[in-house]
Design a protein around this nucleic acid. Structure first.
Lengths: 374, 374
DNA sequence: TTCTTCGCTGCAAACCTTTGCAGCACGAGC
DNA sequence: GCTCGTGCTGCAAAGGTTTGCAGCGAAGAA
């Protein structure tokens, strides 16, 4: 039923190759012929069949985006940014959700491999060696994880965690808990490493709680543990857990920030809407999505050798750039001076705008510039 | 580089058609041959090329999911459910975001048409006639909108709005505002219609505010207007707007629910996390996603005529089922008795669990069953 | 022995497009 | 008049798979 290139050719009285060229190499066809063909195509509602084109060009003009959990509000802005950037370059995005399951991840990469030109692996739960393995099947850009030899986009959560701990130290906290994220998360390891170092050099004690699922429930479930441990401040793996924790603490009768200070990571939209508003480490998620698409497509736009002969590999051309995007601590209302210290907030007035304090609206500014590490 | 069916055939010493049959019609090939072929395939890491298969079968095993705004937390659960259901049936989902733009929607349907077997149009902003038009190009199931002659999945927001208004009437409110959603939204019209009727029959006055963008910002921007209008309760188009409104009212010094009661629609996860927790009309989003996929694929699993000859159309086989899913009012903390009435909450104690009151965790129960309307 | 039947396998067309190559007409230069 | 170049178009192969049809060998029936 849908018009093919042949229908257009018949209607305009030319060969199909001329129709093809009308679209893919217009300068090669006589202007008069061109307008005639275009008119017929328009008339028949012809649209080239991308699948058939992919068969011969080897380019599908699709990219796969594999996500641990779409329902986690951290991801949608990233997806949206990636999708926009891809569309800009005439690419479509296939989004797949793995439910935080490593096996599902692998399965999906395989299933997608043949119908996409590359895959964005977002916060993968797979092992590094498995990632390397699948990357031999299809070009891959990894987001939120560092894998040697593969193009990666990561956020500098280490720096963020350090800032968060220093912020808490400055408020007088010396007993701090780290609410860990899921096992296998690179981000989790980074945060733990940096927070541990910062706490140590500040003379504070850091209690590790977890691993936990990176959800509100995961955070809430640790409320009692936090309570029992006697810490006065908590750095959570992400905002969702921080919010769940605040909720859980509330039910135990502990108030935030009066009794316990809580810091999250990510700066999801939600963190501005809860009460108290969440102090958190803002990560440039949208920029990460855009950057990853660019890296994938840059590597991808090199012409692919064609024909039956074996491709000549001109050395390993993989430009394994690794980009690290900067993070920024955003101080809101979920952190305060250590209880019983008589201190006030560093900004002066208990609720006044402090030095780092940020107005409500507006996304992370100045976080789009990346540091190229390698 | 990736192994093709030909490589497997060569390795196992059979014709490619036998390899093909090994996968698509195993009962037609000798068990011995089968195991040999499977072993070779496994060995070479062969995966059938879905694009090539699509070319001949006319089935891509992909479905498109067109969403107004991924970043709106209403959608991710729907996407996730649709994706899971699709994967169950060996389908993949391409998600596309239109930024609430009707033109982008149309463009995307066209772009996707050839590489998917059908499209899920989710809360479309296009006109009905345009939807009908694109539905001639590719099978379509519409979600959150009623379009005559097309398969649709809608939520009974009318019933939900009625319950919400009745709940407010029961609390003594007689001056109520309706915070409208975006122009072109079917849901918006339904809510307006049902809320208007319910208010009228309850002797209350309903003030319409809007249209507004369906976001926190959109809700917050109307706070002043709400304040000035002197209403004591507000029903918002969705939770996001309700939350934004509460935020805005708070900044104007009005407290919820003491000064103003607010009801949302959707019951997004977020509505349990804000303070006060939101009273809202729960919509079965996940069920909607699953149902829509089922409707699309049921209609799709009918064998497609093949060969050069023109297809014989056996009457219009489009089973244009229209499913309406039930909604449920969830009473939480953002609604209370009209100010100065001396009333208490209907449950008895000001904060005790009322009859409809629901415990925190757990999704909407009993909302998966649908009412088939036609 | 001859004829069927049956189970399995091979053959080749078809799906829709891209692209290197060849062919054609025409004008210019010699 | 012949050659050459140029601008445009047609031809046909290729890409990976599915599938109707035919063929083949063996077993069973007559």
């Amino acid at each position: 039923m849908p018009a093919t290139i042949r229908d257009v050719a018949r209607a305009s009285g030319v060969h199909i190759s001329t129709v093809s060229r009308t679209f893919s190499a217009p300068h090669l066809v006589n202007p008069e012929t061109r307008v005639r063909v275009l008119a017929c195509a328009e008339d028949l509602g012809y649209r080239p069949n991308r699948a058939a084109r992919a068969l011969i060009t080897g380019r599908t003009h699709n990219i796969g985006l594999i996500i641990a959990d779409i329902a986690n509000p951290f991801f949608p802005p990233l997806i949206k940014a990636a999708e926009g950037q891809a569309r800009h370059r005439d690419y479509h995005v296939f989004v797949a959700d793995t439910n935080e399951d490593a096996a599902a991840e692998e399965e999906l990469v395989h299933a997608l491999a043949k119908q996409v030109d590359g895959v964005l692996l977002c916060s993968p739960r797979m092992s590094n060696s498995l990632i390397e393995q699948v990357s031999r099947e299809v070009p891959v850009v990894v987001i939120n994880r560092h894998v040697a030899g593969l193009p990666c986009v990561v956020m500098d959560v280490g720096q963020g965690a350090r800032s968060a701990i220093e912020h808490l130290l400055g408020l007088g906290h010396r007993r701090i808990a780290l609410l860990c994220g899921p096992r296998g998360s690179w981000t989790n390891r980074e945060i733990r490493r940096a927070a541990g170092a910062a706490a140590r050099s500040g003379g504070a004690e850091l209690t590790l709680l977890g691993p936990n699922p990176p959800t509100e429930t995961g955070g809430g479930a640790q409320a009692e543990q936090v309570c029992r441990s006697g810490v006065t401040a908590v750095l959570a793996y992400n905002d969702l857990m921080a919010i769940g924790l605040i909720e859980g603490l509330d039910q135990l009768g502990l108030r935030v920030p009066e009794d316990v200070s809580v810091v999250g990571v990510d700066d999801i939209a939600l963190s501005r809407l809860t009460r108290p508003k969440l102090t958190t480490v803002a990560t440039p998620t949208a920029a990460a999505g855009r950057t990853a698409v660019d890296m994938l497509l840059q590597h991808d736009s090199e012409p692919r050798p064609r024909g039956g002969g074996r491709a000549v590999v001109v050395g390993d051309r993989r430009t394994t750039a690794q980009v690290m995007l900067q993070t920024e601590l955003v101080i809101r209302d979920s952190t305060g001076p250590v209880p019983g210290s008589g201190r006030t907030r560093p900004g002066g007035l208990p609720d006044g705008p402090g030095p780092h304090r940020r107005a409500d609206p507006g996304g992370p500014a100045g976080t789009t510039g990346g540091v190229v590490a390698s």
